[in-house]
Design a protein around this nucleic acid. Sequence first.
RNA 1: GGCGCUAUCGUCUAGGGGUUAGGACGGGUGGUUCUCAGCCAUCAAACCCGGGUUCGAUUCCCGGUAGCGCUGCCA
Length: 502
Amino acid sequence: MEIFMDNVRVRFAPSPTGFLHVGNVRTALFNFLFAKNRGGKFILRIEDTDLERSEKEYEDALVRDMKWLGLNWDEGYLVGGDFGPYRQTERLKIYKKYALKLVEGGKAYYCFCKKEELEAERERQKARGEIPRYSGKCRNIPIDEAKKKVEKGEEAVIRLKVPKNYKIVFEDIVFGHQEIDSSQVDDRVLLRPDGTPTYNFACVIDDFEMKITHVLRGEQHLSNTPLQALIYEMLGINPPIFAHLSTINGPDGKKLSKRHGATSLVEFREKGYLPEAMVNYLSLLGWSPPDEEEIMDVEEIISKFSLERVSKSPAIFDVQKLNWVNREHLKKADLDRLVQLVIPYFKKEGVFLDVNDDIKKFLKLILDGFLTHVDYLSQITKECNMIFDFNPENIVEDEEVKKILSREAARDVINCFYNKIKNIDYLDFENYKNAVLSCMKELGIKGKNLFHPIRVGITALSSGPEIEKIVDIVEFGSRCDLLKKVIPVKDRVKSVLDVLNG
RNA sequence: GGCGCUAUCGUCUAGGGGUUAGGACGGGUGGUUCUCAGCCAUCAAACCCGGGUUCGAUUCCCGGUAGCGCUGCCA
């Protein structure tokens, strides 16, 4: 269906009226993947023709988010290129040129109807149960007369003169052949009195001017495409190939919104999701790899990506699966990198103000012990809370711990363990192992009857990472220059024994 | 209301005129490790409904239903 092209040019064209959310990102991602897979160009264009709602702040956020994800664009906003400018409000002259061309060719006309009048009329039509449409009142004003009015300074918009009884046809890679009667499309406004274009017009002009070969965008634009296809035709130019991407909805099947929790990309970044995990998960929404391997890095996704495997049905954003994808990438990630990523969360908790090499090593030990416990990085501080908040009283409060202590010889184990370590200055792995070993021999206890009490002795808790890892973290942490002190093993066991002995 | 789009386990999906309808997340169970997490094994779980076409439809066609989108001088 699709003609092979080796000069693929695609674009992501967001409007800076809010923060990038997962739906937009998926669209950006698919454009990026397609471009890279085909060795083409990925272009970023800013559609800021909605003067009311567009904000510079959102443009900045958008750039930051795209960069974070690694969706680097080859051409466009901020990086430049041969077809700029790439922000629509800077391209007003271009739209005007094309709009005038349509007017001259009798394909569009000036409309002098007042905005308020039209709105009132729409309301009336709706009230009567009719389909709200433009009456076509100005459609037949002779062009010379209209021009004169415009010259006199009368406010006018330019509307498309949609032909009657006309079949509009276009192809969509995802949704297939589309046919619609021109009676379904209204004489839409192309250019506003202030010279700004409306979305559907600007979009066509820019895609043409920027030599866009494939338009991949959200499914909500499928209904706009007949209008756009018509504009291409009236302009006598060839449309690009369309590929609409199904919507991503919230868990209730409704449009993604605040009440579904995090939806904007910033939120996910702040929570400590890895960018490669976001990319991976989002790539799986509406597209599936040809094999059954779901965990992929960007390069793999690029190499496997094709529009043929994009599905038509809407998808629901599932945080559970995102979490799994993120955990998988967390496992594969370089520990030193994760240390860097985790620093802000510990700072926020007041664990330290500045990092030094010791603290980095300490964080590395924490990650080694607790990483398998988290879905995303910001959870780490809470997960490793036991390192900082040691509460010996817990042994008389926690049911699980009480159960362990009620077992025979539990106290003896803790006592024995304490005696073995009380004179050791720094309990390293060897020392710890030896202490445990001699307790084992001395008391003739092994397995859970040995380790459970030791765990309680050190943490006052019944569960957590491997004891030797905790020993490592706690001992090293106690020597680090931290705002939140870490109590060393020896003192911990002592405190537990004190509580135990009343 | 009109027009358009969509419909496979709870979720993401594969598949496709004849299959034990496959995988993944999540859930259940069991194993492993001192415990939790993890890891391994294992189980339950789906073709929206009704008509056609056909020897045979989950798959193709039509209708219904539901959801979503468009119906703006928003994008």
